[in-house]
Design a protein around this nucleic acid. Structure first.
Lengths: 191, 191
DNA sequence: AAATTGACCAAATTACTAATTCGGTCAATT
DNA sequence: AATTGACCGAATTAGTAATTTGGTCAATTT
């Protein structure tokens, strides 16, 4: 069987985007790494952005699979959320591509990258929202707006994992779980 | 009594920073608006950044006064936090200077502006932390890390007021109060 | 006939340089 | 003693030439 040229291209582009970011990756370079002519890329993808988009879509699918894997169904809702979200954000830290894109978004504001990061966030929010709706139906948590709740949970997590580190010692995973439980799932109030 | 030259300079600089931002404000312009010679500015301030810093310090003091004013001592802790934080963030939206600086930080990343924004955030966090420590002492809320708690409250507020609006209908003030109560002060969990 | 290619093109980006502007100083002036 | 604005080197910007880039397509290969 002949080589899968499309896959070669996707692999090459993923590698290059991870190393140099979206803007600094040229189609000539992708073609060279993939060992195909540049024209071949355009038989599979309309343009550079569409190639980028396909890679990000795969990334989103992979992230969901990771999160599902972390959400043991025997866990309580708040442990499920904790493990799932933590896994997703860990995924974002560990993978070259997401690190590079995160940096490119902040430092250069490349439009295509910003678009894609919004898409990524929306995917996470949608995923969370689903889980919250199920938890409400099951009576695991009280009635609430699933959209806002997903938003709050994600923002809180990002704040605790990424923003807190900018000025303080990083919080351990268990520490974050404790905080989440104390604040969101139990509440601060006395009486 | 002769005119207060220092005050003229501060007023002129505030006006110019508010209209054009830090980077686009020139010392010649400040001098002109203030009706003083440029050299006079340097008899009161070591350089452009120090002038900027003095203005921001005043702004922080004013913000604290606003927050104190909003925190009626008859209110419950969570109403106090809500009114105080809301007032501070409203202050940030309403005042030209803070709008302009917020924008300059995001769009140009001017170093002096970024520094000052950190200082501003730290001031708010410190203020909140104090209030939290008092509330713990009074038994109004349960034991918690005041530093982390202040951080979480502020991040949540910013998320609900600024970030939520980027993709959704703005939340009304009462809605935010309700969310804060539901999530932080009461907790989501059943049983 | 279908798939693949790389020379080619207009448009965008970058590298280079000249011209201007800016923060800060200080001798002259008030 | 306080104030000023002409002046300076450093930094920014404007203007441009040179290069690079995404994308096309006629020629080539399978």
């Amino acid at each position: 069987m002949a080589v899968d040229r499309k896959q070669l291209i996707v692999d090459a582009a993923t590698k290059s985007f991870s190393l140099f970011g979206f803007k600094a990756t040229t189609m000539d370079q992708v073609a060279k790494i993939a060992n195909v002519g540049k024209g071949t890329i355009y038989t599979f993808f309309k343009n550079k952005e569409e190639l980028f988009d396909e890679i990000i879509s795969s990334l989103i699918i992979e992230m969901k699979r990771e999160a599902d894997e972390a959400m043991d169904s025997s866990l309580s809702f708040h442990d499920k959320v904790h493990h799932g979200l933590y896994r997703i954000l860990e995924f974002r830290i560990k993978h070259q591509l997401t690190i590079k894109l995160f940096q490119e978004e902040k430092e250069m504001g490349t439009p295509a990258v910003m678009e894609v990061m919004v898409k990524l966030e929306d995917a996470i929010l949608g995923y969370l929202k689903e889980k919250i709706i199920i938890a409400i139906e099951k009576g695991e948590i009280q009635e609430c707006n699933p959209e806002v709740t997903a938003f709050i949970l994600l923002k809180l997590y990002i704040a605790l994992i990424f923003d807190w580190e900018k000025k303080n010692e990083p919080l351990a995973k268990e520490e974050i779980a404790r905080l989440l439980e104390q604040y969101i799932f139990k509440g601060l109030s006395n009486g």
